[in-house]
Nucleic acid binder design. Structure first.
Lengths: 361, 361
DNA sequence: CGATACACTGCAAACGATTGCAGAAACGCT
DNA sequence: AGCGTTTCTGCAATCGTTTGCAGTGTATCG
């Protein structure tokens, strides 16, 4: 069916071994024959069979990336980055979707080692520590975004404490004192860390922590709906909301739209993690960027390092933090303490009516 | 390192061949030994090595899905569907991102055949017909969403003519007569087909086609911006816009927000293809659903069929169409011909006004 | 000029499975 | 008991590479 090494060898009237050595460039063959074989191989359109090679060498040139889903914009860019990087190095990426489900993660993991992947970047659920630990003995593994506490795997993390701190401080600097926080479940690292960053910023600013302003929930839009309602229904509702549970953003947006709350006039909104449409939305939504691109790149770097190091790529470091940064757009504004709360106020502002607008933009 | 067939055979005091036959269940071994081997294999934690097996059988248990990107929501759900289906059948999905770039597509394709994938579902760029055709001789291929005209590959397509027709008709039924269309490049199948569906609906309703209402462009948000502006700046702007180039939706939304145009009061908006946030958006955006989920499922079905059929799974059918359907949400409304156009009308609802304020523009 | 090193090359055994072929065991039948 | 079937098992080749080892030829040196 396809051209094998034998074919090349025959055409060149040498043995398979010589052909192999010439083509893989082990340097054990004369310059002349090497060139000749290279040429013949090209003419014949020879492509080495990774399966056969893999059988012998134990390597597959396959690197897996295991993420929870593809809906999350961060995972999308990570996948794209990883794929691009790996391809450039001659690896194929095996992208797997684990659905944040331990069982599925475990299954996938076994399939992957069956296929003798050369390396793995995984966003762990945290429930398969033992398995991961065992795997790590055989293949290089790097954890991404989440840590699996049951292991001591090298992990590339977003700097969530800092990101949350940055975001909260930004809001404080704008004059907000009552800042609602919608954050992820407290049994996840990111959930805890983001809360801590928020708390630290508050403390630094001398603002007392008010637990009625803090809501945690699952990473789904519905969380945004319920939490946002709770916040707005408070006797003294917040003047700003920091949605540090990115999936919840949709829910928050909906509730504010339903209640005719104008962002950022009536309420400032700051979100965690970017989505492609955030900058197209009006008002464009300010965010704390967790640096998905950097995270992915670093993860690949670390993985490659380990793969090269053949066994011990331990540089002592167990955990890398990728800095978060604030991207200011239009959804946060200075808080004027004298203005009325968010009760039904009618807009005087229609000033900028469409006439002016339609100019050119 | 890991348990091989030989280990199992030794433990059971039989030959490797017997072990192999027992475990693969070829029925050529006695019930008793088979059970015994199954047991021992389980105890030892034996997992067959797909690489070794692949070398002998020429199969890899790998099926590739090649899409343009992961940003597109349709591709996301397709990837998830394909992954789920394949995994259930013991295949691993190789998800590849081709970026709609012929060169990259071609490279990826070669890598994939190198890895002896058992099957391929591809969204073709349309520029590598020859290569695809050649590949199709060796492995089962199904095209998805786009057709490659240079081949006669089995193709699973969305019913774009029908979808566009449905959408347009919906708007017409709501009383709209001037319907703007923002559609994809006319050198893509989908671009052409959606335009044709739009035209048909118009003709059926006895509405003259007005080419100033029709704009085509690349699949990027910017297209939405420019096309939308052109439409709104028309002497007689449309009362509804059908965005049949899904990437352009963001741009359209931005322009309308900037110009203080309230949807659906001032302008009805209908989009093609769903995005997760469409139903959370206020107003929730009505769409024509191209049935990404169904498309993916059908593609998998067809591929599996071909893979089973070993060579000729040709059922004569070359092309499958998956019906589109209309999902009515809140972005389209009845058009009242008596109301003023979209000139400077001040908002009664006032809700959105300030959003556009941010002067930015 | 003979010995010794060196640079290449080829043979053959792996890697871990599958599979055609032939031998062994078990059985039924005359 | 002898023979033919049938049923199971094992040997060994094979898939396409890589790689240790031994062999060949040529250059180098004393």
């Amino acid at each position: 069916m396809s051209v094998t090494l034998k074919d090349v060898a025959q055409a060149a009237r040498v043995s398979v071994s010589t052909a192999s050595r010439a083509l893989t460039g082990t340097g054990l063959t004369s310059e002349r024959t090497q060139q000749r074989l290279l040429l013949i191989a090209r003419e014949l359109g020879y492509r080495p069979n990774p399966i056969a090679r893999g059988l012998k060498t134990g390597q597959s040139r396959l690197v897996a990336l295991l993420v929870h889903n593809l809906t999350n914009a961060s995972f999308q860019v990570m996948a794209e980055v990883v794929q691009a990087r790996l391809k450039a190095l001659g690896y194929q990426m095996l992208l797997c979707i684990g659905g944040d489900d331990p069982q599925q993660e475990s299954d996938t993991l076994t399939t992957l080692v069956d296929h003798r992947i050369d390396g793995l970047i995984v966003v762990p659920t945290g429930k398969n520590g033992a398995q991961l630990k065992a795997l790590a003995k055989d293949i290089p593994i790097v954890c991404l975004v989440r840590r699996d506490d049951a292991t001591d795997l090298e992990t590339v993390l977003a700097d969530d404490p800092q990101g949350a701190y940055l975001g909260t401080r930004h809001l404080i600097e704008l004059g907000h004192k009552r800042i609602g926080l919608i954050v992820g479940r407290q049994d996840t690292t990111s959930g805890r860390e983001r809360l801590s960053g928020y708390v630290r910023a508050l403390r630094e600013a001398g603002i007392a922590r008010d637990d009625t302003l803090i809501h945690a929930g699952h990473y789904v839009p519905e969380t945004g709906v319920t939490c946002c309602r709770k916040l707005l229904d408070l006797p003294r509702p917040p003047s700003a909301i920091f949605v540090a549970n990115h999936e919840a953003t949709l829910g928050v947006l909906r509730v504010t739209a339903e209640r005719n709350i104008t962002i950022p006039d009536d309420l400032s909104l700051l979100c965690y993690e970017d989505m492609p449409w955030f900058e197209w939305h009006r008002p464009a939504i300010s965010i704390v960027d967790n640096g998905a691109r950097d995270l992915a790149n670093l993860a690949v770097d670390r993985l490659l390092h380990r793969m090269d190091a053949k066994g011990n790529g331990n540089d002592g470091v167990r955990e890398y933090r990728v800095g978060a940064r604030l991207i200011k757009r239009d959804s946060c504004r200075h808080f004027d303490a004298t203005a009325p709360a968010k009760s039904g106020k009618s807009k005087s502002s229609s000033s900028k009516s469409s006439a002016a607008k339609s100019a050119k933009v």
